[in-house]
Design a protein around this nucleic acid. Structure first.
Lengths: 338, 338
DNA sequence: TCTGGCACTCGCACGCGCAGAGTGCCAGGC
DNA sequence: GCCTGGCACTCTGCGCGTGCGAGTGCCAGA
């Protein structure tokens, strides 16, 4: 177990390194933080911290920098979440309230997060897993062609073209529309399959094929919608990564383009609060020198999606966590209102 | 006017520089291209080309590199568009045909372009300016709340919530839906405003306010939709920019995030064929060291949107132009089929 | 008009040495 | 037992000078 002072030393190292981006030595530490002890003492503590794997030296006789393990301890034990100031909160709220539709909400959220944290922001579109169906619309485009429009309670709209195995009359279509909506409107996505299971039986034999086709398209759409979309922004902030960033930045850009990777990344965060994954804690190796700060957000009590930022492990964790948490909270409010 | 050989020298310089990324000297030129003359002669030609501003030396006694003006001449006079090989064409077609919906078409196109050109790809969503309305759907969500869903012939769906000034009955709603569709279905966006102008007059006085509100929301949506969306990809290719790229890459990333900038960029290309804007020809100064190769694409004869790539001025123009043109052609085909 | 030759100019890589920062360790003091 | 000041040591980074090589411009001759 580390003594109280050693923890303070670690905290000071993290703070200084995040600020200066340069390895920090014992002397500088005692000057900038009044720890009440001499550099020599700090040196001993640093040696101990290094033995434990919390800090490391890039090369002999340079200062120390925190390791992933060091950051982990810092985040877990040594630093809280820095709350946003009231003016910042107001700015966030104002900015988000200007949004005109869901796309705009997401777009604004991305910009906001990127600006506040000066890092790369990632925002997942509100998930439909927990969403409910608001309305299903069926439009006849041709005798054997139907357009299916799904509207969810989060305001998303998805459409699919359905080629019917047989011509389908307007009357049958209206019938299907009515039956379908009476069963699924207001219900959860996950409940829909069993709710419509026996629906084809209510129709004439010659229409059953078409009804089945429409239904299976609907189910596909529901599933597909769960493959979330997301939006990223603030990639220009990657240039602040470090001096050697040509090598670092490349895999990060590649990872950011793989939506699957990002979704998995956000998905891994299970905590109700802000989750931080540091360096090698990230499964994707392109992101081994980055940290991901993420949190769920949602209109009600339930989180319907996640958002977060990706930045260098050397980041201001308390500030970033505060910004991410605040933005998530206000986005949730906006979604609840609309 | 430059002699034939000097043009050949310029062409050789561009090709070598694009290949090696290093300033090219007179000796190397004569070795790699059999120009039939000695280095000394080439030197004279190079001096002339430099006087005319087609090439420059980064510093005294280094080789020459092409200037923007040199690339311009190269693109206009010295190089054609390199057609894709049949296997490449087949690969493009196969890849695009796997798309399930419009979003997927655009997403695949971006990936394809980025891969083929190894540069940053930008694809604009098919424009609605020339699109027509397929259907307008109105759904009653609450007594004084209507959801408006617009479906276009390109398969896009947009929805808006409308808060009505007064409660609006189901019957009136159905009436409005019918009248609206009979007027605007199949019509061009640009024609819609005058087509619905006198529509409120057909309704009872107490409903007119609501009808007007719905209509103006519809018109807003049409206009807003013309603020095109776009998708970008392949940003990881920016890392191949050059050795000094920290400074170069930053403004490019920033420009890429400003959709407005990109749209303007693509919009500037007026030619029916492939357009190339080189270095300082780009209005946005963050893109002064990049070239933009773009082309319109569309389902019919008309171009409904643009796509292109952004890369270093030192790029393989013939190959890039060929890839951009081929992708545009096949995307057009795919759109026409669906 | 082209060519070979020649002198010239720089940028760049290399080697060297120095200063500075930082460390580890040790002996002494509270 | 823990903290402190001192000291020797080890690196890295930087500035400087040098030599090399690539590339040029110019000129006289074919």
């Amino acid at each position: 177990m580390l003594s109280e002072r050693r923890l303070q030393v670690l905290r000071a190292i993290v703070q200084d390194y995040v600020g200066t981006e340069e390895p920090v030595g014992s002397k500088a530490l005692t000057e900038r933080h009044n720890l009440g002890v001499s550099p020599a003492t700090v040196r001993n503590d640093m040696a101990a911290l290094e033995d434990e794997g919390y800090i490391a030296q890039p090369h002999t006789s340079a200062g120390r920098i925190p390791t992933d393990k060091g950051y982990r301890l810092f985040v877990d034990k040594l630093a809280g979440v820095k709350p946003m100031s009231p003016p910042e909160r107001r700015a966030i709220q104002n900015f988000l309230e200007g949004a005109v539709d869901l796309d705009d909400v997401v777009a604004r959220t991305v910009r906001l997060l990127a600006q506040l944290t000066r890092q790369v922001a990632v925002v997942q579109y509100p998930s439909l897993t927990r969403s409910t169906v608001r309305h299903v619309e069926l439009l006849s485009l041709a005798p054997a062609r139907v357009m299916l429009v799904l509207i969810t309670d989060t305001g998303r709209v998805e459409q699919r073209l359905v080629d019917c195995p047989a011509p389908f009359g307007e009357a049958s279509l209206a019938d299907l529309r009515a039956r379908l909506n009476s069963r699924v409107a207001g219900r959860r996505f996950t409940d829909v399959p069993q709710l419509v299971e026996d629906l084809p039986e209510a129709f004439e034999v010659e229409d059953r094929g078409t009804v089945s086709t429409v239904l299976s398209t609907l189910l596909e759409t529901l599933v597909e919608e769960n493959e979330e979309r997301l939006m990223i922004g603030g990639t220009a902030n990657l240039t602040r990564f470090g001096h050697d960033f040509p090598l670092t930045i490349r895999p990060v850009l590649e990872a950011l383009e793989e939506q699957v990777v990002l979704l998995k990344l956000l998905g891994e965060a299970k905590d109700p609060g802000v989750t931080v994954r540091i360096g090698h804690e990230n499964a994707h190796e392109g992101l081994n020198s980055t940290s991901v700060v993420s949190v769920g957000y949602g209109s009600g009590g339930e989180a319907v999606a996640k958002l977060g930022v990706v930045g260098p492990t050397r980041m201001d964790y308390p500030g970033t966590m505060g910004a991410v948490r605040a933005v998530a909270r206000y986005v949730g409010q906006i979604l609840a209102e609309s």
